[in-house]
């Protein structure tokens, strides 16, 4: 017998790993991905594959040749960043723009801060916002949803329902279409149904807790409700309309709940969600962009360290 091993307790481990958690998120994203492929066809496929592969490649290159440290692309986090980035892009975006987005997401937003666990901002969103600011035209023309669309760059475009708020269109799809995702928009954000299925899966697998998504959606619902029912002429979007359109569900369920950039305890999460909800509505209703979820999440990402410092979990035996 070899020498006995001594280590501090505990001597057993749950067996949970980072890649396990990432795989869980992938599975949760699957319904939304299928919906994206259904509505946007070939373009969605090309963009998602490009984004995932380029994110993996950039992470590998940086870890291997710049940091000269261990390569950890197998943990799935880079691939997840790629997929989430793709979910936030319109399906008729040229490949080279997607690759630039991946480079910004992985190279600037993630690796330059020290890699997994150290990035203050959600990498996929940084990539997306970078593209939105750099290529506003390409980033704000969305193809019309056509089942299994074989067209890519030349797909017929359509405005998103959110443009309604800015007075660009007057007719909105029916609530059912909004719920199923039959509308213009980014690849992963259109189908509320698919995203909710993913949310339920994440909750069952205990990968995330309910606090952030529910807090965001509740805040948006209440805030837009107050606006709409006090002055329906000016604020035409109903609360349900706000919840079902744009990236609010994708953002609340998958982007805001990113482990690294969200607060560390339930109370902080609720506050964080509240902040995202409020900022999103402010941008949507009063700002010049039709959609504000990405900005809202990035802004609250910046507040996360502060929230962690001042909002503490309920301690055992404390009076409250």
């Amino acid at each position: 017998m070899d020498k006995l091993i001594i280590s501090p307790s505990p001597h057993v481990h749950s067996g949970d790993t980072i890649s396990n958690k990432m795989i869980g998120v992938f599975i949760a994203l699957l319904p939304a991905y299928v919906a994206g492929l259904y509505f946007f066809g070939l373009g969605a496929l090309i963009i998602s594959v490009t984004a995932v592969l380029s994110c993996l490649l950039f992470e590998y290159l940086i870890q291997r040749f710049i940091l000269k440290g261990p390569v950890t692309i197998t943990d799935g986090s880079a691939a997840l960043t790629g997929l989430l980035l793709a979910f936030n892009l319109p399906s008729n975006l040229p490949v080279w723009i997607v690759i630039i987005g991946s480079l910004v997401a992985i190279g600037i937003a993630k690796m330059s801060f020290g890699g997994l666990g150290n990035n203050p901002f959600n990498p996929a969103l940084v990539g997306r916002v970078f593209l939105l600011i750099s290529f506003p035209a390409q980033m704000t023309t969305w193809p019309k949803p056509v089942p299994w669309n074989p067209a890519y760059l030349d797909a017929v475009t359509a405005a998103t329902p959110l443009a309604l708020l800015k007075g660009q269109i007057t007719e909105i799809p029916s609530a059912l279409n909004l719920f199923l995702g039959n509308m213009g928009g980014s690849i992963g954000e259109v189908s509320a149904l698919a995203l909710l299925i993913g949310f339920i899966y994440l909750l069952i697998r205990k990968i995330i807790t309910w606090h952030i998504p529910v807090s965001i959606l509740f805040t948006v619902f209440v805030f837009t409700g107050i606006l709409h029912y006090t002055n329906p002429e000016t604020y035409i979007g109903t609360p349900v309309f706000h919840l079902l359109t744009g990236g609010i569900l994708l953002g609340a369920i998958f982007m805001a709940t990113d482990y690294v950039t969200s607060p560390m305890n339930p109370r902080g999460m609720l506050l964080y969600g509240l902040g995202i909800g409020v900022i999103t509505v402010l941008i949507r209703v009063f700002g010049s962009y039709p959609e504000g979820v990405s900005f809202a999440i990035l802004i609250m990402n910046a507040f996360t360290p502060l929230i962690n410092k001042y909002i503490k979990p309920k301690r055992f035996g404390s009076p409250e």
Partner: peptide
């Protein structure tokens, strides 16, 4: 006489 498997820190080993 045995093999320690844990954090490389005298303080932690001493504590254990």
């Amino acid at each position: 006489t045995n093999r320690y498997d844990g954090v490389n820190s005298c303080a932690i080993v001493h504590n254990l």
